[in-house]
Every structure is written in C-alpha cells, then in structure tokens.
C-alpha cells in the first residue's frame, strides 16, 4: 500500500467533480443544480489546497481556495435571488420547464 500522497487527493477531487457535473445535468430543481455547482467548486478547492501542500507554491494555493469560498458565498446569494425571481416569473423552479432560450 503506497503512502497517501497528492494523487489520492486528486482522485477524490475528480470523483467529486464528476458527481457535481452529474448533479447539475440531471436534477430538475434549480436548487439541486446549485448544490451540484457547490460540489464542483469544492472539488477545485481540494485541488488548490493539495497542490499548495505538495507543490512548491507557498501559501498561494490556500489563499486561492479561500477566495473561491468567498466567491461561492456571493454566488449562492445571487443564485438564490435569481431562483426566487424565476419562481415569480414562471411559477416553477424546475429548470427543464424553463426553455425560453429556445426561441
């Protein structure tokens, strides 16, 4: 059994990434889509922190992860506001029923 290293974290993050993509594609509910996006962001974050730990970049990787978390907070707030507005306009938050992009 090899010792835990960079590659293990990368594999965990890529699994998380694929699950996130899967969630974004398959779920109907807009809030569930948001959750998928959060998973994707977190998988990227794991990569940043792992490379900061094993690579030779100092603390910049951790700082970037911090910035991503901050952006995710802003994104969640805006996204919830958008979801509420969508609900008011279409009376649904199922994204598959919102296809005005087609026209």
């Amino acid at each position: 059994m090899i010792h835990i290293g960079l590659i293990h974290y990368l594999i965990v993050s890529s699994i998380l990434f694929c699950l996130g993509i899967f969630g974004v594609i398959t779920r109907k509910n807009a809030i569930m889509v948001l959750m998928g996006i959060e998973l994707i962001l977190n998988s990227a974050n794991i990569n940043f922190v792992a490379f900061a730990r094993y690579g030779n970049f100092g603390n910049s990787g951790q700082l970037t992860a911090l910035f991503v978390i901050i952006l995710a907070a802003a994104e969640a707030a805006i996204a919830m506001a958008i979801v509420l507005n969508i609900y008011k306009m279409f009376s649904t938050i199922n994204v598959d029923e919102i296809d005005t992009l087609k026209d």
């Binding site: 974004v24 594609i25 889509v33 994204v95 919102i98 296809d99 005005t100 992009l101 087609k102």
Partner: peptide, 14 residues
Amino acid sequence: FQTGKVQSYLMFVI
C-alpha cells in the same frame, strides 16, 4: 439539439 434547456447544452459540452 436546440432544446433551450441549459442542462442539455451542458451535456453537449461534456
């Protein structure tokens, strides 16, 4: 392919 649904577009991207 032109469904107007963002999720299908994402599928094509993948």
